[in-house]
Design a protein around this nucleic acid. Structure first.
Lengths: 145, 145
DNA sequence: TAGCAACAATTAACATGTTAAGGAAATAGC
DNA sequence: GCTATTTCCTTAACATGTTAATTGTTGCTA
């Protein structure tokens, strides 16, 4: 008996894309008003949370590939939301830090984005929300706890 | 008391990206050998499963935006994996169908991709796998059951 | 039937994803 | 100290994501 592939409406990759669409829709709406992209938002979020860090760590924490980060960082620098400084001890390395203007982007949208998260939890139920995060982290290629 | 945003390592959007990376990694490896991209694979999968259909339905089932589908379809046509025909009753519309060569792409990788799915279920556990799909579908902007 | 709204699909423009190649700086090993 | 390797980052090239504008068709309606 030949097994068959899961039908596309029960496919995990597609389900992940669609869930992401659903989750991101309200966030994207918020960011459109702000004039930055979802990835730029992620970078600022990580920097606001952890402070100044080298580019490699930043890329990992924001789940961005390095070439993407290079472009995004240069955009954010042009917008005045981050600063880039070279490490004097290891001149290959680069430190990235959020500016006051960048921090303001985060602060100004804090209430709004908090509300989005609250709505999401309401949609799923608090328990389901936590369960989902746990299951997703089992698929994470980095942590694999 | 001011509430704070979830830390980025407990953020649903980021968790979804990372899970997707983890799930797609072995699939991408498989597709690299095949010489098609993940999205092209999705289009062929949907066509193999449901047969000939109009472009709009295809885009929805493959979770692709229309402009993306336009480009992908033209690539797949050039590779000889699909055919595009105009609807005579409504000449705005276009029907897309998988070719024998396209079907062969799917068939040749069936065993391999089945194994990938099996491994995934093993990683998560069968119950968790189903639970995850159910939770993700709750976030799907289209079905919203 | 002329005009207009709605629709399917394409194209354009810009940002990111992805892989590969390249450049500059640090490090290991001899 | 010199070379080979490794590491951090950038650039390039192509595919896709995303939004907006455009084209060609259909259908409605005044």
């Amino acid at each position: 008996m030949t097994k068959r592939l899961p039908t596309t409406d029960r496919s995990l990759p597609i389900a992940l894309i669609r869930a992401r669409e659903g989750v991101m829709a309200p966030i994207r709406d918020m960011l459109t008003e702000t004039g930055i992209t979802e990835q730029q938002w992620r970078v600022l979020r990580v920097l606001a949370e952890h402070g100044r860090m080298d580019a490699k760590t930043l890329a990992e924490r924001a789940s961005l590939l390095f070439p993407s980060l290079t472009r995004i960082a240069s955009t954010l620098r042009d917008k005045g939301f981050i600063t880039q400084t070279r490490d004097d001890k290891d001149r290959r390395r680069q430190f990235i830090e959020i500016t006051t203007a960048g921090q303001k982007i985060i602060d100004d949208r804090q209430a709004q984005s908090l509300e989005i998260v609250t709505d999401l939890k309401k949609t799923l139920g608090a328990d389901n929300y936590e369960t989902l995060l746990d299951l997703l982290s089992m698929l994470d290629p980095i942590k694999q706890d």
